[in-house]
Design a protein around this nucleic acid. Structure first.
Lengths: 349, 349
DNA sequence: CTGTTAGCGCCTTCAG
DNA sequence: CTGAAGGCGCTAACAG
């Protein structure tokens, strides 16, 4: 049974037709007699034939491999896992399969996996780039005519399509929401300063502060790793300054959770003693009993959109880069309350 | 620059050697002059040559495609995302790439992706099977000589290797831990009854109850979807019975979080008014300020082990199925306390 | 509608 | 150490 692979020739012989006929059946061509087709498919099933895409792909001039590469900076982060799932959904239903690799924010690793993917002849690439990714890194891809879509994080100067969320607007809305509840000192917590996403969100923060007639205070911007631990750290630093904030918008939900941890460690109840707004809506937030008000982006949706964009470009042969800014939504959870605070972060009345 | 693909012929011509020489260089053969090798590699870089694995693979009799398939039932679940990352780590460092697909527990989808992967000539498959996966589903793979490793969930009757955690022992330890703290009525919450994992864990529960000289009460076993919402539901059902439990071991961490949600909704503080033990250690638990005592399994570690096992089998050509039972660890978090309770779940003293 | 004839890009003899 | 053939499994023209 394991006597070498079953090929079109085998099934042609067994079905008493020629290989070309088999090939036509394989491609669902209408040029073949229904009876013949039935017989051929029957034989294929019987012999346990499996199509060899590698060979087909080799023959077919171009490189329509039906495989698309997906590179993610941190699959361990629920947000990116959801993104990958979103991509997978449309990729799968389009008859493609996805190479998925995790870079753990390592540029070297990213280079390696992209190289490896190229060797396998991917017909397109979707990536949420590792921090520090340069337009130069994508250069070889685009000059080889491989469509690329970057997601979540954009790569400055790269002539590729992108799907990013409306970072500026999200934070803007969050800060204004808090301001409308009476908060006059809202901190911006978490995130790495060397990223475009941080820049965009910080810009939203500044804009909102300005538009509310408040004063921008550099001390209220506390960078930290975008993790739960980072959030706990950030809030403790934020609360150690003279004029304490009474609320915070967080770089992402992981940070927000960490901020809650940090608050509780100081006997402050998030949502009651200190208002917290998260960003990104990772898994926990979705499946949870409401805990935080969040600026919600739909990672699966972004993944789907990125994949659709990529497929469009693959099918179109060649199209210029296109950018999608995925809109965000402020989700106010009733249960987290919206207290007014004094300048020490204590609840008023 | 996009004038068709650069092939070995192109680079041979440009370097003034024959294609075979180039081929030898590609495989790092020692049969080639150092000077020649240098020149060839230089030309390769210059012309932007990319190795075509598809073609190589086609020629090389067998099907050592350097790609391994990974099928996961729910990538959205941090546990499985970690598993995939673990697999990726060793797969990548072995020079393979991974096809990763998500089945969302759909058997149809699972069949499709496996078929698709076969067409692409995967040299091995790692899967955490969708619920209801049958030994029959894996039959074609094994009879085609493709090594398969199932992870997390075993498939009864399938002659494939597996890497599962010690479910029985984990729950056993959890229940005994609670008993040692004085809990005499510990519930077992969450999980689907139609899975082998549930069976194993339930068996551990029964064994522990017996070994502690307690009475087994069917009412204390509450099945529910292994999600946060399921956990909230399960605990509310568990607390609605006459003789209330004072503690619970949970099917997994998602359930445990849900249980905490449910407790808080009833003004009970988890860890103080009701002891909760989680299982699986998904991301939240690891990055969190300690919240729960958990029965900890290391999903990345399982992924790594599964991948190593698979690679071993791939390299060995053929080996019989091998099973690894990944040990678990009871992690007691100080901060969650270990209170004694009365039969109403109220804290004593 | 079906059979024949060439290769896709690469790797493996097998001689030079 | 290098060059010349042949073929992996499949598809793309053409003939029949």
């Amino acid at each position: 049974m394991t006597k070498g692979r079953v090929t079109v020739i085998d099934i042609a012989k067994a079905a008493g037709v020629s290989k070309s006929t088999v090939s036509l059946v394989l491609q669902g061509s209408s040029l073949v007699n229904d009876g013949t087709r039935a017989k051929v498919t029957a034989v294929m099933r019987e012999l346990g034939y499996v199509y060899n895409r590698g060979a087909a792909n080799l023959r077919q001039a171009g490189s329509k491999s039906k495989i698309i590469g997906v590179v993610v900076n941190d699959l361990t982060n629920g947000f990116f896992a959801e993104l990958a799932v979103g991509v997978d959904v449309v990729v799968q239903s389009a008859g493609f399969v996805q190479f998925l690799s995790n870079t753990s924010e390592s540029l070297d690793r990213q280079r390696e996996v992209i190289a490896s993917m190229r060797e396998h002849g991917i017909s397109g690439l979707i990536m949420s780039p590792a921090r520090g990714t340069d337009a130069e890194d994508l250069k070889p891809l685009v000059s080889a005519g491989i469509p690329v879509v970057v997601a979540v994080r954009s790569v400055a100067g790269a002539k590729v399509s992108s799907v990013v969320s409306d970072n500026r607007e999200g934070i803007f809305a969050g800060v204004r929401h808090l301001a409308s509840l009476g908060h006059r000192r809202t901190a911006f917590l978490g995130g790495f300063r060397d990223t475009g996403v941080f820049d965009d969100r910080l810009e939203g923060y500044r804009a909102a502060v300005a538009s509310c007639g408040l004063e921008f205070d550099e001390d209220l911007v506390v960078d930290a790793p975008p993790s739960r631990a980072g959030g706990a750290d950030a809030v403790s630093r934020a609360l150690s300054i003279a004029e304490k904030p009474t609320a915070a918008v967080c770089f992402n939900d992981a940070v927000a959770f960490g901020v809650c941890d940090g608050l509780r460690a100081r006997q402050l109840e998030p949502g009651r003693d200190f208002a917290v707004v998260g960003f990104d809506d990772v898994i926990e937030a979705k499946t949870a009993v409401p805990a935080l008000t969040t600026i919600s982006v739909d990672p699966q949706g972004m993944g789907r959109r990125a994949a659709q964009l990529l497929l469009k470009q693959i099918n179109a042969g060649k199209a210029e880069a296109e950018s999608i800014i995925s809109s965000v939504r402020l989700v106010v959870r009733e249960s987290c309350g919206a207290p007014f605070h004094d300048s020490l972060g204590r609840r008023q009345a």
